[in-house]
Amino acid sequence: MANIAAQRIKREFKEVIKSEEVAKCAIRVELLNDCYTELRGEIAGPPDTPYEGGTFVLDIKVPETYPFNPPKVKFLTKIWHPNISSVTGAICLDILKDQWAAAMTLRTVLLSLQALLSAAEPDDPQDAVVAKQYKENNEMFQITARHWTNVYAGGPNVNKDCDDKIKTLADMGVEEHQARVALSSYDWELQRATEQLFS
């Protein structure tokens, strides 16, 4: 790895550890290997959003050309968000693509992602199904996102209705996550989700 990239990650790593956001448990960074190319990030779900109370784990890969090119970041924790793929965790955020600037750091990237959780951009979606629900049935989107936060990110809000419907499908032999995806995509209508799963 180019020297400048490793040097910078080292410095940034110290900066993140000292930052006040870490003290408030809003963000966290861990090293995965000694050569500073792979890191694990963590962000707390912002308050007053369906993601509140959840902890979202991110996979951060630092390219050799860092900081001239952005780090590759994706969600490892499954999340229901218009700009994040519910399948792969890929993120649609301009600063991770063409709007990247060399003075941005791990800290600012994590804070930007946290901001993305509080302010979705449904007109520039990564996950079309989620974006459609966000725009057309926002109430259902909130319920779904809160449920996913509860199940995958350790959020506190249990939704009995969702759990029951998933259980119904699971009893029919559908894998739990598959059932959750089908129900989430069809606004929690058991009938349509079942049809889609068994068609």
């Binding site: 400048i4 050309t65 001239f68 090119n69 063409d98 600037a101 060399a102 003075a103 941005m104």
Partner: peptide, 20 residues
């Protein structure tokens, strides 16, 4: 050297890395 490399990386979008 750093700024030069930044300008070389994006020849068609030359913006300040801090304030754009």
């Amino acid at each position: 050297p750093c700024l030069h490399q930044w300008l070389e990386t994006r020849p068609n979008r030359q913006v300040c890395p801090v304030c754009k």
